[in-house]
Design a protein around this nucleic acid. Sequence first.
RNA 1: GGGCGCGUGGCCCAGUCCGGAUAUGGCAACAGCCUCCUAAGCUGUAGAUCGGGGGUCCGAAUCCCCCCGCGCCCGCCA
Length: 552
Amino acid sequence: MLLFEDFRSKLLAALTRAIPNMDGKDLLLDSSGHGDFTLRLFRLIKDMNSTPGEIYNLVLTAVSAEDYVEGAELAASYINFRIKPEKMFSAVTESMSARGQYPDIFQDPERVLVEHTSANPTGPLHVGRVRGSIIGDSLAKLLTRYGYRVSTQYYINDSGKQMIALYEGFLRYGQNSMTPESLLKGYQEIYRAMESDKTIGEDLEKLIQAYEKGDRSIIMKIREIASVMLQNIRESLQQLDIKIDDYVWESDFLMGGDVDNVVHELSEHLNDEDGAKFIETDDGSKVFLKRKDGTSLYFARDIAYHLFKSLNFDWFIDVLGEAHKDHGKNLGYVLKKLLDLDQKLDFLYYGFVSLETGKMSTRMGQIVSLWDLISRTEEEALSIVTAKRQDLPREKLSEISKNVARSSIRFNIIRVNPVKTMVFKWNEALNFEGDSAPYIMYSYTRASSILEKAGDTALNDFRFTDDHEKKLVRSIYLYPYYLEEATKSLRSDIISSYILGLVKSFNDFYSQCQVLNAPEADRNRRISLVKMYRDILDDACKIIGIKNVDEM
RNA sequence: GGGCGCGUGGCCCAGUCCGGAUAUGGCAACAGCCUCCUAAGCUGUAGAUCGGGGGUCCGAAUCCCCCCGCGCCCGCCA
């Protein structure tokens, strides 16, 4: 949980003492520019059979002893509260100097596992799948920032039909070359061949059976192939600074007997259809665990995996593409209703990413791979930064453009609510103006530039008089409220909205208020404010994976 | 056909959970701002029947119902 000077809660407590009918829902962060917090009176007017004026008098009395309240104004059916900017400023500086961060956290004992990406290692990661990686990684960082103990895992589906196809594709068309490129080619080739040659499908069935009977040579070969692809995926993720803590092999659950145990444990709920085993869920849908030939299906193996998760974690969050909604629902049913799992289980689904030309498909070769995206974005960033900063050495330019590219890719994906489908467009991916990562990073470098020139300052007595300063202070101070909301709803995109607002406040301030050339008293206060801004901005940026640089 | 989700200026997006003060920003367009801490910035102009229709309410982008459009799912694939 977050620890900070929470003026909203204090205000609510004070108001509730005077007005017992108060509903916390009516005291909100003000987003209309009238004040810092706002109290909606509609409900109170009705409940108390009173008038805005009468309530306003009660409120004035209630907050008279609250030293952080600067004022309260009645406007239409609202009472707008202004909090002293000096108090908000101190709340942040005191936390920063005492605890090194704002807000501080109280470590939650709950151990959280965020599973994400988990793409079949049949090809390089494409921009559709990487949406899950970026959402998952940011979610893990968000929950960590909130105080949870978080791990991330990638579930490697090395046991299914698709991996068998990859393996067989390699044998037939791979020409003994175990590179991601030739493996992918073999994979695409075999699906093409299968359209005209039905015997291939039968061969794959036999291979699956041999695999599940424990044929070491096949299993190890597939692991080898999967490792090659996985290495490619890991390296591309690393370019976005996404590191997954653990990679869990699906085949381990098969070989270790865990899948058999799952089937055994669920035996009383199993139905039979020609020898195939399925469960009927509460909404009447059939979910198969075993084929009629006795081999296992993904659902059974995923249950085994989740039971494994329960050994070490109290809360699992699976980040999945929306295509897996039913899978998630069924999984939840089996785990919670049939197996009495008491751990918390949440699914975070993200919408499909398509290309302007249609949907992406690894099998069809219709993809923009993460590698394509990274190289083109870096290229674009490099050409821009090179044009703007001819004074910088080549290595510096390259480093900056790498960070710009990485941050842009992450920001463009994380800024959109996960439930929305997206159409990937190059001109949007390569836009570095407006609501973009470089816009944010640029603002950071401006702050850095000031601070580098500023030297040491002492801040004694201070008062904020300038509106731009006040707005910036408020924006910084409100950070925990957004952290709270983002965490509660598992939505990192809320952090990106917050950042854009924060940056806007700073840019306004920057364009209107001189810092270094200001009179001594203003100068010291503003330097502290800039420092505070840079700290909070960077804190928030880390959550969504924007990597700031000191100059660009 | 059934289930789930989405629909906000030409384009992208916030706000919808929890109904309230003139619907948030950006891109593109147009007009301005570098003798001043980095112009990847700032200011201004123009652009919205919040998919459509009903309903509830003092009040609806937000809640309810119907309809339309789009996406995903409805495999002994994952």
